[in-house]
């Protein structure tokens, strides 16, 4: 089993573990284990009520493709592996 932060299926809490939305109604009866989001082909089964599935698929693949390496690496590690760097000067 991986580090919970490594699974990166739910929003990451400041403590390094997944947010389980413990202030949301019916949080106590999740569709699967608290710290995992049930998915089909990489897509969450449950979506926010105001989020049409097609939008979500588009936004999700767009954000995955656009994630900088630094954020991708750090989100899967238990500490900051790549520190933010100043942008290179434009020539």
């Amino acid at each position: 089993m991986q580090h919970p932060a490594l699974e990166r299926r739910r929003l990451l809490h400041a403590g390094g573990y997944p947010c389980i939305a413990c202030t949301a109604p019916e949080f106590e009866s999740p569709k699967s284990t608290f710290t995992e989001t049930p998915k089909i082909a990489g897509m969450s089964v449950g979506l926010p009520t105001d989020m049409p599935k097609a939008w979500f698929m588009a936004l999700s693949s767009l954000s995955k493709a656009a994630t900088p390496k630094r954020i991708d690496t750090n989100a899967r590690a238990d500490r900051v592996r790549i520190a933010p760097q100043p942008r290179r000067e434009r020539s």
Partner: peptide, 16 residues
């Protein structure tokens, strides 16, 4: 990360 009800303590270590 917070108190109460942190999930930081896991069977094989801590998350932060």
């Amino acid at each position: 990360g917070k108190w109460l009800h942190t999930l930081a303590i896991q069977p094989a270590g801590v998350t932060r």
